[in-house]
């Protein structure tokens, strides 16, 4: 479904991605793990079109989307839940979700809204409240709900567990699994490597802008290098 081939990205003169390739098949949960500054978030932003890339190509559904601006990639079915949630703080929960459906046909929005509120009942109780006043976990749900409002086929999740209590982490990851059952493909960036490997089918390990390892989650979880560097075993 998604093919990233030799993507190079630089901030000014500093190259942060040195030719990254990865693939996500329809219906998969693929996890991207790596330490701070490895280029995970950069790669996510290149895929969603927020950052320009300087080399390589990105193919989505057999079509090159490198030249497509970010707002049109949303139309194709790619939605990103950004790192640190990035909710529209002064706007209400309901408005945040409506904006998530910005590119949908107006007729589809109410149905999708009901679906998101059913998925995250905590949000339904707060629909009139400014998003900035929600707790961290609720903001994470809101950020996910907002991305789902666009009806994505590929969901890019950037560190959904960051700063959340363990109970909430489980809840968020359960939701990811449920979404996959509903037909959404997921590319997940996580520092919580245990949790990421537990729900993902396959994983890639990225180090300083290069993919250094990849394979089925179970294999990676047993790999001595992964165990040492990321699982602390």
């Amino acid at each position: 479904m998604l093919k990233v081939e030799n993507v190079v990205c630089r901030y000014g003169r500093i190259e942060v991605l040195h030719g990254v390739s990865l693939e996500v098949g329809a219906g998969e949960i693929v996890s991207l793990i790596g330490s701070n500054g490895a280029g995970k978030t950069t790669l996510m932003r290149v895929i969603s079109g927020i950052l320009p890339m300087t080399g390589g190509r990105i193919v989505f559904d057999d079509e090159e989307i490198d030249r497509l601006p970010a707002h049109l990639r949303v139309v194709r079915g790619i939605a990103q839940v950004p790192e640190a949630r990035q909710v529209f703080a002064p706007l209400s929960v309901n408005d945040n979700l409506l904006l998530g459906g910005f590119r949908r046909r107006a007729a589809d929005v109410p149905r999708e809204l009901d679906r998101v509120y059913a998925l995250f009942p905590a949000l339904a109780e707060k629909r009139g409240i400014a998003a900035g006043n929600l707790s961290g976990g609720q903001q994470q749900m809101l950020a996910m709900g907002r991305a789902l409002m666009s009806g994505p086929r590929l969901l890019l999740l950037d560190e959904p567990s960051m700063g959340l209590a363990p109970v909430l982490v489980d809840q968020i990851l359960d939701t990811v699994v449920a979404l996959r059952k509903a037909g959404v493909t997921v590319l997940l960036v996580e520092q919580n490597v245990n949790a990421a490997l537990a729900i993902a089918d396959r994983a890639y390990v990225i180090e300083t802008g290069r993919i250094v390892l990849s394979g089925p989650s179970a294999t990676l979880a047993d790999d001595p290098r992964v165990r040492e560097a990321y699982l602390g075993l």
Binding site: V74, P82, P90, L91, A147
Partner: peptide, 24 residues
């Protein structure tokens, strides 16, 4: 209006506005 809200959303968080498909 949704267009007006898109303007507020762009003001509040430009990155997120682009990610939901708003042509900022």
């Amino acid at each position: 209006t949704l267009t007006g809200k898109a303007l507020l959303a762009t003001a509040a968080n430009r990155l997120a506005a682009r990610l939901v498909g708003i042509n900022t």
